[in-house]
Amino acid sequence: MAEALLRIEGLCRAFGANRVLDRLGLEVGEGEILGLLGESGAGKTTLARIVAGLERADSGRVLLADRELPPLSGRDRALCRSVQLVFQDPYASLSPRLRVLDAVAEPLRIQRVPPPHVARVRETLARVGMAADTLAKLPGELSGGERQRVAVARALVLEPRLIVADEIVSMLDSCRKLEILDLLAGERARLGLSVLLVTHDVAVAASVCDRIAVMSRGKIVEIGQTARVLADPRDPYTAALIDAVPRL
């Protein structure tokens, strides 16, 4: 079993009386794509945002390679490079004022990577399947699928160790979903990238994840190899999720 890159221990988060995360524990291995499945609700996204540092948990801890991950304000530049988040909404995650080149180069600028950045941006965009002529375009000129690719490129340009993908394909058409997911799988093979794929869609998890973890009421109710979980779910909630998928 690959060594755990990300370890989540006893994470708790409550909004008033609603316990969204209830002593949750999870591990993502080095170079692994782990799917986190569950209903639409605050739980999965809250977990994703806590790992990314945008929110803080009430208690518990998150460790990256045995080093504790504080919320964003406490992270140094190197730590910011290691963990990246790709958001759900391709229409909101790119600034409408920045052209593609500037949007993807932004992390490099913020991290004070010495210029020129153009070559690196172009290469990253090529890897996500975007042609060089899109460099000068504004997000308004791109489709949802194209914007999401740019968002993924932006997350990849710093070569992070872990990417948290928060429902990244749920706003895209069925055809586009597979393309983006294949992209991530390709980067995993290339960079040894680990991915925490948060989704409510069983089909999405099934298509690209090595392992699947199912979340319900703030806890992980099932976890295991994808094929096993789909063929032989041990938890009734998992079975309900799988059955609910429309089929041809």
């Binding site: 069925s174 055809c175 979903k177 597979l178 069983v202 089909a203 099934a206 298509s207 789909l230 063929a231 779910p233 079975a239 799988i242 059955d243 998928v245 089929r247 041809l248």
Partner: peptide, 13 residues
């Protein structure tokens, strides 16, 4: 293409 985009999942009863 649309048909190909639909994932094949096992049916659990």
């Amino acid at each position: 293409a649309l048909i190909a985009a639909v994932p094949r999942l096992p049916v659990i009863h």
